[in-house]
Design a protein around this nucleic acid. Sequence first.
DNA 1: TGCCGATTTGACCATCTGGTTGAAATTGCG
DNA 2: CGCAATTTCAACCAGATGGTCAAATCGGCA
Lengths: 206, 206
Amino acid sequence: MAEGQQKTGTTRIQARNREAILTAALEVFSTFGFRGSTLDQIADVAGLSKPNMLYYFGSKDAIHAELLAGLLDTWLDPLRALDPKGDPVAEIIAYVHRKLEISRLYPRESRLFANEILQGAPRIMSALEGELKALVDEKAAVLKLWADERRIAPLPPHHLIFSIWALTQHYADFDVQVRAVLGEGHDPFAEADAFLDTLFRKLLAP
Amino acid sequence: MAEGQQKTGTTRIQARNREAILTAALEVFSTFGFRGSTLDQIADVAGLSKPNMLYYFGSKDAIHAELLAGLLDTWLDPLRALDPKGDPVAEIIAYVHRKLEISRLYPRESRLFANEILQGAPRIMSALEGELKALVDEKAAVLKLWADERRIAPLPPHHLIFSIWALTQHYADFDVQVRAVLGEGHDPFAEADAFLDTLFRKLLAP
DNA sequence: TGCCGATTTGACCATCTGGTTGAAATTGCG
DNA sequence: CGCAATTTCAACCAGATGGTCAAATCGGCA
């Protein structure tokens, strides 16, 4: 129940184990989904016994919740960085590259998120309707302004953002399909980086 | 073991029940994933008892396999219809609209497929590397020819196809997120239809 | 109508799974 | 070193889950 770490926390072991558990859980949850994952599986990957793991996180849900909680911020940061005062095309293109880079570096996080959304976002719906919608609306307003000023092509701002999400996350979430179709001798993310650069430059040109 | 329907199959009841089971299983599997779904759940949705359901399909895996088997064809048909002798831009745009229409009409199938890919495609990897890759390579060659002839912009054909998949499936697989962000008073698919039309026309313009 | 295979089901089973417990091992610290 | 707090885990538990089976019911046809 208690989290430990009252007064002088035995931070050494606690930090290491909590980290190991979350890393293992991310690996397992992102591959098999919440219900498809078992505590034994996670404990095994984390190198702990199941009771020991439950000593740090009280339940399977608690582990999953902790992962999801950290996720949305990581997810939104690249969009937050989109600067209304910057050059429109450059800002948007930079956002595309940042998002693709995140797909490349954190595919497990991407798949965890995808799993959650696919199942109807039961645990983060409120965050979608709140935090996410607010940020997107704010940035969409910026995009609309840029469009009105003829600095980018006139496009529905929300769908422009969706297209960035769809195209970048596809390379993380559908990685196995991309690789299966491309076959050997390809670097999917490098190729995607160039392709998406071209795509959005053509799309945004006024 | 036997499929029934030897000689004069009692096709009436068999057909109805198999259909009910597959429909229910699609609904449940696409929402909760394979391991996240239970036979009781599926049987309940199908309006049958669990043993009765297992009378028609020997196991949970058998039901899932049957669904996946039918899926790939439905998935590839729109791409097959891309005509090398047609007008390049018109053919590709038509493909985009067909694919989006399928996302709209068959979101459950889309999510079932997405679930499978997300988990590493353990059950359809061979189909991806075989049937799917073959078809994509064939159509990619057509796209490359069109590009070489300057009838469309020069773009990496495989990634062009990926972009169509990513953008259309996004509206099915991430439907709840799209709706959460857009809020009330939107018709996501209608807006997507117009947006993707614009996007690909600009992208493909030589 | 009565027969026979097709269909349906209640009861049951072995295994898996999330979670608990109590006691032992380890650790940090005065 | 000694000891209290922290950490670890073998053994266990209750409920869920995939699957089985024998018996009951149904449906069409001779």
